[in-house]
Structure formats: C-alpha cells, structure tokens
Design a binder for these strands. Sequence first.
DNA 1: ATCTTGTTGCAAATCATTTGCAATAAAAGG
DNA 2: CCTTTTATTGCAAATGATTTGCAACAAGAT
Lengths: 164, 164
Amino acid sequence: MDWIAQVTERLRATGGRMTSQRRLILETLAQCTDHPTAEEVYRRARQRAPDLNLSTVYRTLRWLEELGVVGSQRFEGERPQDRFDPAISANPDHHHFRCRLCNTIIEFPAPLLEILKRDFIAHYGGSIESASLIFYGLCQSCLQKVESYGPLSFNPDAILDHTR
Amino acid sequence: MDWIAQVTERLRATGGRMTSQRRLILETLAQCTDHPTAEEVYRRARQRAPDLNLSTVYRTLRWLEELGVVGSQRFEGERPQDRFDPAISANPDHHHFRCRLCNTIIEFPAPLLEILKRDFIAHYGGSIESASLIFYGLCQSCLQKVESYGPLSFNPDAILDHTR
DNA sequence: ATCTTGTTGCAAATCATTTGCAATAAAAGG
DNA sequence: CCTTTTATTGCAAATGATTTGCAACAAGAT
C-alpha cells in the first residue's frame, strides 16, 4: 500500500473524508524533494486545480502534521514561516542543515543525539520527548565557491568616484 | 565595567545614543532569569515608565540581537513568537530544554555537539556556522508529579451520567 | 437517490512584528 | 550653557503568515 492510501486510511479511521483537494495536496507533497512553505505547496498544486484555495492547503497541512505524516519547522535567516517536511514518515529521526547561501536543506541522522539527551537527563532530571537540531552554515558546493573566489575584501576608501 | 556600560560603549562606537528607554530595557533584561517575549519585556519595563512604547522595545531588542547581546528563539507548542535570551553574552554556547507542562526553559551546555558537527561535515562537506538545539519534554518536577499521580486513564464509557 | 455532516472557497479576522513620519531629545560643537 | 545635528521615540498604520466564520458544496453512509 502506498503512502497516499495509508494516509487515506488514517483519515477515514478518524471520520475524515478523502477529497480531490486533499488527494492533490498529498500527491504534490509526495513529489517534493525539498521543504516547501504552505504557499509553495499551494502554487505547485494549483497548477493542476486552479481553484484550490490557500486555506485548504493550510488546513490539510495542519491535519497531516497532527497525524504525524509531515513535519514542520522554521529556519532562521528567512521570513518567519513554516516549512513542511514530507519525509518525516519515511525517515522519522532526521535533523536539518540549512545552507546560508543557496538555502538548500540537508536532512541527516544524528544517532549521537541520544547521548546528549542522556547527558542532559543525568544532569537535570526530567524526560525528553522530542528534539530539534538545526545546523546553519555553507553546504559543500557553496563553501567551494567561496573558497575559490577568496574572501571579499570590502574597503570603502577603495571605491572610485565615477562622478569626477 | 558592568553589562549595561559595555552595551552602552558598543552602542556609542557605532554612532548610537543611549536613551532612558534603552537603559530601562537593558535594566529589565538584566533582571530576567527567564526568556521573555517582547510583550513581556514591555510589560515589565512599562511599570517604571508607563509611556514606553512596544515598538521601542522591539527596536531595542532587535538592535541588541544584532550586537550579539541577546539571543532569540522560538519554541514549539506555543504561539509563534520570539523569546529573547539575555544570557547569551554571559554564556554563549548554551542550548535549550523546554518543559511541555510548566514551560520552564533550562539552558544547558552541549560540548558533544562539536562531535555531531564534525560527523556532519565528514559526511556532507561544507561548514557549520551555528547550531540550534532544543529539547522538549518534562522537567524534573513535572515528571515527578506525573509519576506520583500515575498516568491519567481516560475511558469515555466510565464517565457517569449525572443527569439521571 | 437521499441524507448527514465533514470540507471547501471566500473574505475577513488575528496576531506578532515592522515601518513611516512628525515630534523629541541625545551628544557634539561652539 | 546654548545651539545644531540627527538618532530615537511614540503613534498609528502597514505587513505578512496563518486562522477562522460561514454559506455552499460534496463524500460517504443509509
């Protein structure tokens, strides 16, 4: 059984209905290899159904979030907006790296995080139910570009006055 | 030289001016042991200067953020709003645990995170400039309360009909 | 085929945060 | 100390992502 059928089943199990809009949004999500915003999901899905509404996209995404089918996170250095992560069910325990230049997001596993959790609990007690780890930096290719160009040297005094 | 004097110096160094509002906000932040929202900083500060404006609080907090004097982060499970962290300059490399019940935030060091960063770079290349790690769970005292009460057993059929 | 009720589209509301602008007040210079 | 410059403030309005009320619509059950 594929992903969409599974989600449909969960939906029915809680008294929900499968609609053409929801199916479309699910299919759109299934094709994503990135972490789209609600607006981006909307734009992509609307190509196949121009009267789809942004509210419906939001409602569907929130509902999928509750079902644990998609994740959502916000990243620094961009407008405050949720990005949705369709990969969460296939790959539950991943974290995120975001490139400051090209904005690529890399998902990576972090089994060592368990040690950090144990450390925390050893020191402070309590229990940990979930964790969010985000790295920010330069991805491999952006780092190479920066290195090959060398650092930018900005010297205001060196700027020529072309008006003279 | 105390914290406020240091911040004032940095401010002057960039052509800024120290005002009564900024001093008040700095003093309010210095007394915080928690991670207040802009609104909370505003409420606390306004007790001493009732005509302080929320915009001024925002502008000052953003400016302190740029100076690296305060941090800001958002936590899941509450309205999407920034919380400001006055402890960042005293204690630069800390991460956050947030209790799902009492909302207490615990700051903790995570030196092992360096290993995770090295692991990531070994696998994917690139470079890491910053990291955000947030744990969500129950703090020690909330965990104890939950354990001593035992888990709540919710059984709809067991609810008595008091209308009879 | 019909009924029930979950879902949609639309427009308006929310809510944290930002911004334009005229008035105000630091700090610099005399 | 007093003027001058211009950074900063308070206020109100704008912004922008997200949510919500509601009447029309359409799944899925009977």
